[in-house]
Design a protein around this nucleic acid. Structure first.
Length: 295
DNA sequence: GGCCAGGTGGCCA
DNA sequence: TGGCCACATGGC
């Protein structure tokens, strides 16, 4: 299917972002084409996303069973719309880029980049927890081991496409099952605990969204063991899509600011708060663009 | 070999 | 509230 994209969208910037780790397991990029196994009824489907010579986006289902194909096509388009955040109007953000000295260093440079999401909240939470206090390279390694151990996959053209593990599966594990993958025992406890809350239905994406405002959702998340302000805001940003979510403690953000401004030290929390006063309502996009400058 | 990493919980004033 | 500190393991 051909998909209408907004004016301020760049598929090549999206692909650049998706290409940032060769160790990524949840999708595959090859020849400027993106492949991903996504949830669908009655079972996951494999989709291919590419851009034609006129810069239109194309989404195709590679393993569709014929009778359901129309429903599946709609599911695929909806998924990509959510994943690539195609419905957000970026014009106000770019307006900020014209007045904010720090944002101006990234808005033109990465024009058309959108905050790539993690639609599955269990995946977003796990990725946040896995990434706490370890370098990103190792985080990708841990995620790969985690998914290969407890997720499901389908092979297509000699490549394996993975679905993220189900909360029910992780909730049934013992910490030893995860420390065996080199997770710390704390991380293992956090992952199993969050999986339990989602498996029993006390924690859901819909439920958090129904709370209505970001502060209430943040409080609900931070009350969970293993989820602090950074992880909560990371999930609010990449899964629940609150544009004002702001993982201000993020060391990557600190380093991005340091390098972009040529500082000799990382900025303090107070300095970042000061610099971000202009970003009100767009903190998540500001963070995503600043992260992008790191690779 | 030492510092750092997309932090968090727990303790203390 | 805000400031320390232990934690735990790999990357570079």
């Amino acid at each position: 299917m051909k998909v209408i994209t907004p004016k301020e969208f760049s598929f090549s910037e999206t692909v650049s972002y998706l290409n940032r780790s060769a160790n990524e397991i949840m999708f595959h990029v090859e020849n400027d084409t993106v492949y991903k196994r996504i949830p669908a009824d009655p079972e996951p489907i494999l989709i291919e996303i590419s851009e034609d010579s006129e810069r239109s986006l194309h989404i195709d289902i590679l393993d569709a069973s014929a009778p359901q194909v129309h429903l599946l096509e709609k599911a695929a388009v909806d998924y990509v719309t959510e994943w690539f955040d195609l419905e957000t109007d970026l014009a106000p953000f770019y307006q900020l880029g014209r007045i904010d000295p720090l944002l101006s260093l990234v808005t033109d440079r990465f024009y058309g980049l959108r905050c790539v999401g993690i639609p599955d909240m269990f995946e977003a939470l796990c990725w946040g927890i896995i990434g706490q206090q370890i370098n990103l390279t190792f985080a990708y390694t841990l995620k790969r081991r985690f998914v290969e151990a407890f997720g499901s996959s389908k092979e297509w053209n000699g490549h394996k496409y993975w679905s993220f593990p189900e909360p029910q599966r992780i909730a049934s594990l013992k910490t030893g099952d995860l420390t065996a993958l080199q997770m710390t025992s704390k991380k293992s406890e956090y992952l199993i605990g969050v999986a339990g809350l989602m498996a029993e239905g006390t924690l859901t994406k819909e439920g958090l969204l129904q709370l209505g405002d970001i502060r209430t959702a943040e409080k609900r998340l931070v009350a969970i063991r293993g989820i602090g302000p950074w992880t909560a805001n990371y999930v609010l940003m990449r899964c629940l899509r609150y544009p004002s979510a702001f993982p201000i403690d993020d060391v990557g953000l600190h380093n991005a600011i340091k390098y972009l401004l040529g500082l000799s030290e990382k900025p303090t929390a107070a300095e970042i708060r000061q610099m971000s006063t202009n970003w009100s309502g767009w903190e998540s996009y500001a963070t995503f663009y600043l992260w992008r400058s790191l690779y």
